[in-house]
Every structure is written in C-alpha cells, then in structure tokens.
Design a protein around this nucleic acid. Structure first.
Lengths: 351, 351
DNA sequence: TTGAAAGCGTTACCAT
DNA sequence: ATGGTAACGCTTTCAA
C-alpha cells in the first residue's frame, strides 16, 4: 500500500502539502500540485479512508438502519448506495432488531463507525430518533415521526397520494371505496406510521367528499421463513360481509392485490368491470404483474433514497441550512384495473 | 466519546491492560479485569472501530460488490448483513459499475476501507476476481467463475436443480419441455454465468433422458427506469412457432411466468391442464403470486448469503482451511402449476 | 505557499 | 500479569 509519506518523498515535498492537494484544502502552487499529482499517479496512491476518518474525526460512512429488511426497501437501499458512492461516501447496512436499538445506534456514530445515519421504517414515536438527537449525530429519516421539529426527513406525500387515488376513482363514479392497508400491530413495528397515517387521511378525504369508505387490514407476518400463505387472503370475504356495496379498492399492499384479484375471480367477478383497484405507495414493478395490471401510485423510493442521502451528506459535511421536510408525490402508472362504477349489475353480495 | 485511556485512568491501570481485557487477547487477573469492566460500564465505553482497524491493520468491514443492484439480490444482502452483524462485522454496499472495476476493487481492500469482499453476479470470466486475487484480499464468490482454483465460492447447485425439475415433469409424462432463461448478452453482464450454465445442463440432461428440449430466452433490460413492459412477453408465440409440441416449461425467470400464464390464457390454454410450468432459481415469494402459483425450486439466497459471509469472516480472521466450494440445492415449493402431460387434447399450435 | 509536529484511539511489541 | 511506547496513515493547527 502506498502512503502519503511515500508520495511526499517522491514529489520532494512534505506530507502536509500532499494532504492539501489530495483534499484540496489549501492553495498550492500549480507547479507543486502537478509534481504531487504525478507522484500520486505513478505510485498509484489511494488515500486510506480509515486514517482519514480517524484523524479528521469525520467518517464518510453512512449507516442505513433497518430493523426489518424488506423487499420493498430495495429502492431506498439502491438509491442511497448510489448517491453515497457518487459523493465518495459509503453505505453500511445496519440491521438493528433489539430493543437495545437506541444504545446500539448511539455508539454507532459515537465510535466513529459511521458519520451519519439514514433511518428506515420510522414509527410515530421512535426511540431511535431520540437517541440520535441526544447523540447529536447527523441523521435523516426516510419516513417521519409524529414530532417533526429539529430533524430532516424525506417521506411520501400520503395526503396528496390518497387524494389523487380517491379522485381517480370518484371520477369514475365510485361512491363506496375500500382501503386496504397492512396491520403491523402484531409486530415490533406496531406504531409504524404509514398505514396509520394513510387510514386517517383516507377517512378524512372520503368524508370530505361525502363518500363512503371502509378500512380493511392485512396482518403482517414478520417471520421471513413463515410459509407466506397469500398475504391478503380473505379480504374479499371480509369485504362482502362488511361493505358489499364497495365497487373500488385502494390497496397499499403490493402482494395483496394478487389475492384480491384471485378471490374476486373465484366469485365470478372481474376486474375492473366489477371492481376497480388502485395501488398506492407500492412498487409498480410488482403490481404490474397482476392480471390485469393494477393502476399504481408508485412509491418514489429511488428519489427518496437519493434525496435523503444527499441531505445527510450535506449535514455530515457540516452544512447547516434549514431543516429539510420533504414530501414526495407518488406518480401514477396507469394499468388496466380502473373502470366506471358498475350500475348495480354485479355486486359483491351476489357472489 | 470515552476513550480507552479514560477507562484505564479510572481503573488505575495502563491502557494496554484495558486493551487486553476488551479484546480478550492476554490473560488478566480476575480482579483487575473486573475493575476494568466496571470502569467500562460506568463510563459507557465503546471501542472505536476506526482506530482499531487502523492500528491492527484489520478491518471488520465486508464490502458487497454489486454491479447491478437487483431485487433478486435482496435475500443475499439481507442474509449477509445479518451474518456479518452477528459476528461483529459490518456490511458495506459497494456499487461498482465502471469498467474500472478491477482497480476500484483493489483499492478497496488495499486502503483498509474493507477487510474482505463478497462478490455478486459473478461472470464466467471475471476481471474482478483476478483483481482480488492479485491484491491478495480475502473474498468469497456468491456464484462462480469458470476457473475455480484458489478461491472460495457458494453457488446454486444448478445440475441437481435442473435434473430435479426435469424429473418432476418427466414423471408426469412430459416429453417435450422448454427452458426459459434470461439473456444478458445485450448488457454489461454478457458472460453472467447462471443462464449459460443452466442452458448447457438442461440440454445435456434432456438428451440423456431422450427427451426433447428447446431453450428460449428473455432479453434482459438493465435500465431500471425503462418502462418495464412485461419481461417475457412473446415467449408463448415463440414457443408456438418453434416447438408447438411443448407441454411443459422450466422457467428461470420470476416475472416471465406472469407473462407466460397471461399469453397462454389469451390463447385459451390453461395452466396446468395444457401446459405445466416449473420455476427454478427464483424466489417463490414472487412466483407464488402467479395464478395458479408456480411450483418453484427456490433460490437458497438466504442460506447462500449467510454461508458466504461466514466463510469470508473466517478468512478475514486468518483461518486457512481448505477452499470452500459449496453448491446448494434449490428446495422445491409446491404450487399448482404442474399436471400430467395432456394427451393431444389441446396444444399450442391449436391456439 | 509550504513544513513541522502534535494528535486521532487503538494495537502490538518489548520490557519489566 | 502489567506497563511503556512506537506505530497505523492521515489531518490540522501553528510557524516559517
């Protein structure tokens, strides 16, 4: 391995000067700079990230904390890793499950292992956030807590997304719309914010429009080795029992859409003729596989991951602009799952 | 931040002794050890990973190199992160695209940024592998190159998986079976090994059994922002044109199964009555969403990720056992996509 | 504009 | 069994 000292020797300058050139931290004569650059090239010097972090008390490592690692996080992870790499930072995956989370996290930045933190699966009330604030370490939420003061976050604009989804369906004449969300209450993520938030928004938006809406939940199974069964199985039966006049569904659950189509078909109902379906905050890469493809308001996961990372890097670099509270819209990807409301032709209770 | 020196002061010993206790590297009197431990607890000391790595010239960071980040890698990533965390190591995601790959990788371990490397998406002939060997840095392949000497790898046992899939179908009377694999030739991963390997094995196994088999390919689109279209669209038409007597398909492509079912249905054919389908080396979490659920030989991605990481950690810790060449079977997850071969009732060419 | 030198928090060797 | 101390490779004052 080539050290800075070796470069300095070869260029006939002091190690400090090399450092100035490498980091572009102080002015250096064009001539000297060139001499040093040549030495660097000839020797194939690469600065040692560890030593740099230790000496500067500034790590270029970003820790991404994810209690549950989930296929749905892929976009975030990928985008974050890309944005980090582009800025010369590195992304470390930090699986934290224990209830000891907070302490774990604190020591993470405190020991220099990571210079900043990206937090996933944020809960309404999140001990990890408090820990990060106390430790005074730079962090950005992908998602948000109830309290928003004094922190940066990037989240989905659920308000606008839900409103758009409802408008889309109401525009087709649907008056009775169901919402399907995941229920995390049996898991460690009991207060995981998105489904709760979306259910509230949905109820509010529906009543504001004088429409009738019911909320259905799909229990979340966390054990990755559990026989997956079909998430969302039974939803249609539940629907028939509770709100048979429902003609459209807003589904915040990628795989449940498959079960819904399947169960409707078993009852002789067809999407979108007898039931319209709209996916929200899911990946269209998945929902487009449903037959028919589900019209989807897609999670802007890549944009969120990139943005969050860029904000975090700015903070890690010491920038102190105002807090970033960024909400991003889900863009719609048209499918073939939305049609005008049926006129009493076929209904759920007839099945 | 609490340093080792502070602990030493508080315990009234030298910093060396604290180090011995913290790392359990030399015998220390029970009494002293306890005194030190108390100081550690009281002060909330956590050793600084950076300093440790710098001084010991041994990083506990594992870099996972992934040219293309793909949903299918999720199992690997998750399992690797978990196994690493369990051993006190950390997993860094290292997106490497450039053709400068090799150099990038070398400097990675050379500068101490990472102590070991996990390589994904391995090609038959992989420059990165050579770079790692030359740099003399510990690495483990998830996948394998053509040449296997002098390296560790964990890969799918394609031989046995393909044989099992064929046996399953042949056992139901199918004599003419198609294979669907992804074609990476238009991408940077042109020599990506698995599809090539599987196609070879398939042909060999089929002719060994005196069965008739044809290989079909689905072109791979790498641009993540490309309108995904439906991967695998057109396969059925191709099938009808080339090998209409086909009654079963072995599909090494999770999402193509959806297109296949869809296109068959459009021709009035039904799975599994008119065509049996078996998935191999894919995730059943995805293929089970097909209607009907596809019988799937599932990629043991979690096991592969865990194993590879454990082997790598052993190497990083200096263990020098024999090379690990581990092939893991894909376990079958029964679906409802396999039935006895139809007796000339409905065939593809009739569609 | 450049250089000297004191750290950064550990580890590891050599003494004791 | 414990301590002293020189690295590890770099950054960052402070001086020149």
């Amino acid at each position: 391995m080539v050290t800075m000292q070796q470069v300095a020797d070869r260029a006939g300058v002091s190690i400090s000067t090399v450092s100035f050139v490498v980091n572009d931290t102080k002015p250096v004569t064009a001539e000297t700079r060139e001499r040093i650059q040549r030495a660097i090239d000839e020797l194939g010097y690469r600065r040692n990230a560890l030593a740099r972090a230790l000496a500067s008390r500034r790590s270029h490592v970003i820790a991404m904390i994810h209690p549950i690692i989930d296929r749905n996080h892929y976009g975030f992870v990928e985008a974050a890793a890309g944005a980090a790499a582009a800025a010369g930072y590195n992304l470390v995956l930090w699986p934290v499950h224990s209830d000891d989370e907070a302490r774990e996290i604190t020591s993470l930045t405190t020991t220099g292992a990571a210079g900043g933190v990206l937090l996933l699966e944020v809960r309404y009330d999140d001990a990890r956030v408090r820990a990060l604030q106390e430790a005074n370490s730079p962090f950005v939420l992908i998602g948000r807590t109830g309290e928003l003061e004094g922190m940066d976050f990037v989240d989905i604009d659920f308000e606008s997304t839900v409103a758009h989804a409802i408008d889309l369906l109401a525009g087709e004449g649907h008056r009775c719309i169901g919402l399907v969300v995941e229920d995390f209450s049996a898991t460690a993520l009991a207060s995981y914010a998105p489904p709760l938030r979306v259910a509230d928004i949905f109820r509010a938006e529906m009543s504001r429009r004088d429409l009738h809406g019911e909320v259905f939940t799909v229990p979340r199974v966390l054990d990755p080795d559990a026989p997956s069964g079909t998430p969302g199985a039974g939803i249609v039966a539940q629907l028939a029992a509770t709100a048979p006049e429902t003609t459209a569904l807003v589904v915040m659950h990628a795989t449940a859409s498959f079960a819904i189509v399947h169960e409707l078909r078993a009852r002789g109902l067809v999407i979108p003729r007898d039931m319209s379906v709209v996916g929200i905050a899911v990946e269209s890469a998945v929902t487009s596989l449903v037959d028919p493809p589900v019209t989807t308001f897609e999670t802007p996961s890549r944009e969120m991951g990139r943005l969050a990372t860029e904000v975090l890097i700015a903070r890690m670099a010491g920038a102190e602009p105002g807090r970033v509270h960024r909400l991003i819209d889900c863009e719609v990807r048209p499918g073939a799952s939305v049609a005008p409301a049926p006129h009493g032709r076929r209904r759920l209770d007839a099945g």
